[in-house]
Design a binder for these strands. Sequence first.
DNA 1: TAGTGGTCTAGACCACGTA
DNA 2: ACGTGGTCTAGACCACTAG
Lengths: 246, 246
Amino acid sequence: MMEQPVPGGLRARIADHVVGRIVSGEWQPGDRIPSENDLVATFGVSRMTVHHALRDLTARGFLVRRSGSGTFVAEPGAYVAEYRHLDVIEEIAERGGRYRAEVLRRDLRPAMASEAEAFGIAIGEAIFHAVVLHYEDDLPLELEDRLIAPRFLPDAMAVDLSARTLFSRLMLVRPYREGSEVVRAVTGSEEERRLLDAAPGLPCLEVSRRTWSPEGVVTVARMLRAGERARLEGRVRSIGEAVAVR
Amino acid sequence: MMEQPVPGGLRARIADHVVGRIVSGEWQPGDRIPSENDLVATFGVSRMTVHHALRDLTARGFLVRRSGSGTFVAEPGAYVAEYRHLDVIEEIAERGGRYRAEVLRRDLRPAMASEAEAFGIAIGEAIFHAVVLHYEDDLPLELEDRLIAPRFLPDAMAVDLSARTLFSRLMLVRPYREGSEVVRAVTGSEEERRLLDAAPGLPCLEVSRRTWSPEGVVTVARMLRAGERARLEGRVRSIGEAVAVR
DNA sequence: TAGTGGTCTAGACCACGTA
DNA sequence: ACGTGGTCTAGACCACTAG
């Protein structure tokens, strides 16, 4: 994610020095560390080099910098876990599996009140609704229930969903977006469990995601997986309070 | 997370220009964008300024840079979801709840084979094992089963767990760590469901986390929550393939 | 007022990729 | 051989903070 200084580079030497003092406990959370000019004198490098090194460490959550005041060791108040979500087709391809999709529903219909509110449109305005079951090697992997604002995918009713998912197609037209997501453990409805071939008592993992572009909400989706297929693996890193995820 | 250019600054002007071309679709994923020297000429700024602007956009997932080759619009092949994990006590405090802990187990015992392997120690070497049930307003919220390498928390058998969690205590001694984490939907054992006061059929969300410092594995923990209490909320952002989370 | 970090300049040398 | 991005220098001005 972050640009890492080249090993052996001057930045890396400075960064290693600072991180070393922090992880050894010599510099405690909240402590003020030497100023840029101090480090310039210590290492005999230019100020820009020191600045870059400290800037990287700030982005990585080790430091908090306050202009006019100084550089401080961050208070490690939280963890951030990062999960990489691939498109279902890519995920299956990575495992070497065979992909197949079954389209269970595909409507262009008037938006209900709750949907209109979510998308910031008027009640009754057209909204695209698709339910797709994704298979890996002929076993149901994921049930996707997705709403899309038609203006972002005008040909939504016509597109072929066997080679490219709606997710991926939206990526093509609005590649750079933000969103929020909620993960829950759920039972799922009778119907959903039947579709996912979930044994009685087998819990499901539900991921609900809402994504938007600068022009408005693009899509709202609910993805359901059952049992051992429902597994999210992520990386965790310690962060300082001041750089907490917004 | 990332250092954002000051609005109105030269960096921001360059970054806005580039992002604008990308989100408008004028520059497509995979396209090569103007070189640093081109942008220097276009904007009449120094190369360092252009470099910083493009560097930030790379870290933010918009661009991929290949030394000797050029700068390219990133292929948005994946999403990254970020979840902020607070310490249980802090999480409850944020909601204004009352915290209470029940220590169900607290052992310093020989490590079994699988545990020894996970921690990189010898079989039979001492390992600290704690099981704690965290209550919010006298309702069980989370069941925590944690192993700790004793060298990182030598006084583990003596510490008071009612005011500060083991998580938070480990934070104090080894604040800057990395880890991996797996989220699953599970049923949980009879015993676990009883402790969590989980109604029959109510699924549980399990978070398994392994964290390490440069000196080795610090702790392995399994956190279990039931039903609507088991809810992870995160932010999502689009990223380019080349900056995918490692 | 002195020190801090934030930003920017106008040069420079380097490793690397491509032609 | 040339252009690319990566790194570094030695200055500079600024807004802000603290004593």
